[in-house]
Simulated assay, not measured.
Amino acid sequence: MQLHSHVRANERVLTDLNALVEEQLSLISQSLRSTHPGLEVLFHKDLDPDLGWVKLAPQDFGRALLNLINNSLYAVAEKRKQVGPGFTPEVTVSIRSEGSRVRLLIRDNGTGIPRKLHDKVFSPFFTTKPAGVGTGLGLAICHDIVVRQHRGEIRLDSVEGQYTEFLLVLPRADVKR
């Protein structure tokens, strides 16, 4: 939180991405009861202990993480309604350093996204959610934050009824902790 107070919006600074992910997961865990009452989700974290620092705009990138993870929670909550109590909702966040890049994967075992919609999901005002539930801006904003602001990539892999994965690939700074 101290880092956030000293950084201007949109300013990219060396950031502990593992700590940022932990912070966002903590915020989501605290708000889960009010956003999805009665939903118990298994959160899996696979963070790279040797990651080092990544140059990010922490507030903006944190917002993208929150949106992607909240979308995962929506998907697993919807699948829980469809399948019933035998279904265990799971969300996984994984980070791996790959030389000059960092790969961050967010995966859920929710409803998935139909293949025919994959090319549209990052378009402004397009949503896979029912009318009145989604604005169609969340994934478009995530795309802008990752691709335009951070010069990274964001990819979707999903099988309807099984899972959704968002892979974020970011350039990193050559600085270790």
Rank of each mutant, 00 (worst) to 15 (best):
residue 2 Q to P: 00
residue 4 H to P: 00
residue 5 S to T: 08
residue 6 H to S: 12
residue 7 V to M: 09
residue 8 R to L: 15
residue 8 R to Q: 15
residue 8 R to W: 08
residue 11 E to K: 07
residue 12 R to L: 12
residue 13 V to Y: 05
residue 14 L to P: 01
residue 15 T to H: 07
residue 17 L to T: 11
residue 20 L to T: 05
residue 21 V to R: 02
residue 21 V to A: 04
residue 23 E to A: 13
residue 23 E to N: 06
residue 25 L to H: 01
residue 26 S to V: 03
residue 26 S to R: 12
residue 26 S to H: 10
residue 27 L to N: 12
residue 27 L to D: 14
residue 28 I to Y: 02
residue 28 I to M: 07
residue 30 Q to L: 15
residue 32 L to W: 05
residue 33 R to T: 09
residue 33 R to Y: 07
residue 34 S to M: 14
residue 35 T to N: 11
residue 36 H to E: 09
residue 36 H to G: 03
residue 37 P to Y: 08
residue 38 G to L: 06
residue 40 E to T: 03
residue 42 L to F: 03
residue 42 L to Y: 03
residue 43 F to K: 02
residue 43 F to A: 02
residue 43 F to E: 03
residue 43 F to C: 04
residue 44 H to L: 13
residue 45 K to H: 02
residue 46 D to I: 01
residue 48 D to S: 05
residue 51 L to D: 08
residue 51 L to A: 11
residue 52 G to E: 12
residue 53 W to A: 14
residue 55 K to L: 05
residue 58 P to I: 09
residue 59 Q to E: 14
residue 59 Q to S: 14
residue 61 F to D: 10
residue 61 F to I: 02
residue 63 R to I: 09
residue 69 I to V: 14
residue 70 N to S: 10
residue 70 N to R: 06
residue 71 N to V: 02
residue 71 N to Y: 04
residue 72 S to G: 13
residue 72 S to H: 05
residue 75 A to F: 10
residue 76 V to G: 06
residue 78 E to I: 00
residue 78 E to A: 09
residue 80 R to G: 05
residue 82 Q to V: 06
residue 82 Q to F: 02
residue 85 P to T: 10
residue 85 P to D: 15
residue 86 G to A: 15
residue 87 F to W: 06
residue 87 F to S: 11
residue 89 P to G: 11
residue 89 P to Y: 07
residue 92 T to G: 00
residue 93 V to L: 15
residue 95 I to G: 07
residue 96 R to M: 03
residue 96 R to F: 00
residue 96 R to P: 00
residue 97 S to N: 13
residue 99 G to F: 00
residue 99 G to C: 01
residue 100 S to C: 08
residue 100 S to V: 09
residue 101 R to V: 02
residue 102 V to W: 07
residue 102 V to E: 12
residue 102 V to S: 11
residue 103 R to N: 08
residue 103 R to V: 08
residue 105 L to I: 07
residue 106 I to C: 11
residue 108 D to R: 02
residue 109 N to M: 07
residue 109 N to V: 03
residue 111 T to M: 12
residue 112 G to K: 04
residue 114 P to Y: 07
residue 114 P to T: 08
residue 115 R to W: 01
residue 117 L to C: 11
residue 118 H to N: 02
residue 123 S to I: 04
residue 123 S to W: 06
residue 124 P to F: 14
residue 124 P to M: 12
residue 129 K to Q: 15
residue 130 P to D: 15
residue 131 A to I: 09
residue 132 G to N: 11
residue 133 V to D: 13
residue 134 G to Y: 05
residue 135 T to A: 09
residue 136 G to Y: 01
residue 139 L to C: 09
residue 140 A to C: 05
residue 140 A to T: 01
residue 140 A to I: 01
residue 141 I to E: 13
residue 143 H to Q: 13
residue 143 H to N: 15
residue 144 D to A: 14
residue 145 I to L: 15
residue 148 R to Q: 13
residue 148 R to I: 03
residue 148 R to K: 12
residue 149 Q to L: 14
residue 149 Q to Y: 04
residue 149 Q to V: 01
residue 150 H to W: 04
residue 150 H to K: 06
residue 151 R to A: 11
residue 152 G to K: 06
residue 154 I to D: 11
residue 155 R to D: 15
residue 156 L to N: 13
residue 157 D to K: 12
residue 158 S to R: 00
residue 159 V to D: 14
residue 162 Q to Y: 08
residue 164 T to S: 10
residue 165 E to Q: 13
residue 165 E to W: 01
residue 167 L to N: 03
residue 168 L to G: 04
residue 170 L to Q: 01
residue 172 R to I: 10
residue 173 A to D: 14
residue 174 D to Q: 14
residue 177 R to F: 13
residue 177 R to A: 11
